[in-house]
Design a protein around this nucleic acid. Structure first.
Lengths: 216, 216
DNA sequence: TCGGGCTTCTCTGTATACAGGAGTCTGCTT
DNA sequence: AAGCAGACTCCTGTATACAGAGAAGCCCGA
């Protein structure tokens, strides 16, 4: 493992999990010392974060962790909607039915688990990530995967703006189950519709649960 | 201007204009000497190219300019279609009518110029880039702009696979005029339809004019 | 003659040293 | 007291030196 890859992964995780909140100044010498590496690989990691949009080069003063705002989330979903729909359509056309049937079953089980109160949020988001990965794999389009990766990165950070309650998690599980089922059946339009519903509900929940625009 | 920015721009232009054809090995010391800079800023430029998908890190042997294939172009357009449609819809909703009316007029003039034989391909592609930029600006969505920038980068390279003939250029000018007009009128669905037609024709032309899959 | 292993060489990955510039603080002037 | 100018300081941007890893070539053995 290269030191720059390690630094990139570490910083990226720290930003995504809000250990490095928006507005944090990432000084080169400080971060290099913190991670136990030299400035050279750290600079490469920082440039990758900047390219990804997780940090911005604050001219002359180093790079700063970018802000997350309500307006930004709306923009994010404006792009996610057509892209996720396209991915779902392609996946429906090229999928392996068994894989998505299995995912649909697991979302049904997750829904039952949530209703019974045994909510494991971390595990649930892992399952969502599995569905995303399965759709990406079925869509088999590297350009699509790259674009999705960028957007999902920002989504992970935006999630922390909202308090996830069991009701929303239960509804989300049902929506994801619908998506997986539609893809499993090879019904592209149904899959796109299910994605549209899910993203619409997801955005609405996010906007409703954030008190005001949070800049930092 | 930073040396790394200069190197990035120079290498990017060289790759896009096929002065560095697919498969070219970009050795650090060689390129650094060619550009008259040190390895440090050159490495930053290379990492940006890799992140952009224009080059790939060939483990242990440096980075190599990525290939352009027919299958890759089909993938590219699979993503471009929903994204350009979304951009056109947003632009139609938020546009400044005068700007797009002016662009429509310029495409009409460009069409007349092409029919009369005075084709200036370079200037025409510049006009297309202006329309793209105007749509981006009107859509006012940074995530969309970033995704589009990535895709259009690869498109520029793919264009060189096809021989542009005056007939196709004339048709393209008409299609772009339709897009600009639809956006100017604020008709989102019409704009999306015009984009769909243009991309479909564009892809068909590309696929028809390439003899076989070109890997390198 | 062909294949495998070893050696060597080159190239990447990393660390560090140096220079230029931007920001800030302080002191002076009005 | 407030504003401006100058200098200082820290931080980024760049160059270079060094080490380790991978690849290629060569030699030896079968």
């Amino acid at each position: 493992m290269r030191a720059s890859d390690m630094a990139y992964g570490s910083l990226r995780a720290d930003i995504l999990e809000w250990r490095l909140p928006p507005g944090t100044l990432l000084a080169e010498v400080e971060q290099a010392r913190r991670l136990g590496i030299s400035r050279t690989p750290l600079r490469e990691a920082l440039s990758r974060l900047v390219a990804e949009g997780l940090a911005a080069a604050h001219s002359g003063r180093g790079v700063v962790v970018t802000a997350v705002s309500l307006a930004g989330i709306a923009d994010l979903f404006e792009v996610r909607l057509p892209l996720e729909c396209a991915a779902a359509r392609l996946a429906a056309a090229r999928r392996d039915p068994a894989a998505f049937d299995a995912l649909a079953d697991r979302f049904e089980a997750a829904g039952a688990l949530i209703s019974s109160g045994g909510t494991d949020q971390h595990a649930y988001y892992g399952l969502v990530a599995e569905l995303d990965a399965a759709i990406d794999e079925a869509a088999a389009n590297p350009y699509l995967v790259q674009a999705q990766r960028q957007l999902r990165t920002h989504l992970v950070r935006a999630r922390r703006l909202a308090r996830d309650n069991p009701d929303r998690l239960l509804a989300s599980a049902g929506e994801h189950r619908q998506i997986a089922q539609a893809v499993a059946r090879g019904n592209a339009e149904l899959a796109a519709a299910a994605v549209t519903i899910h993203l619409s509900n997801s955005l609405h929940h996010l906007q409703a649960s954030v008190p005001g625009p949070l800049d930092a």
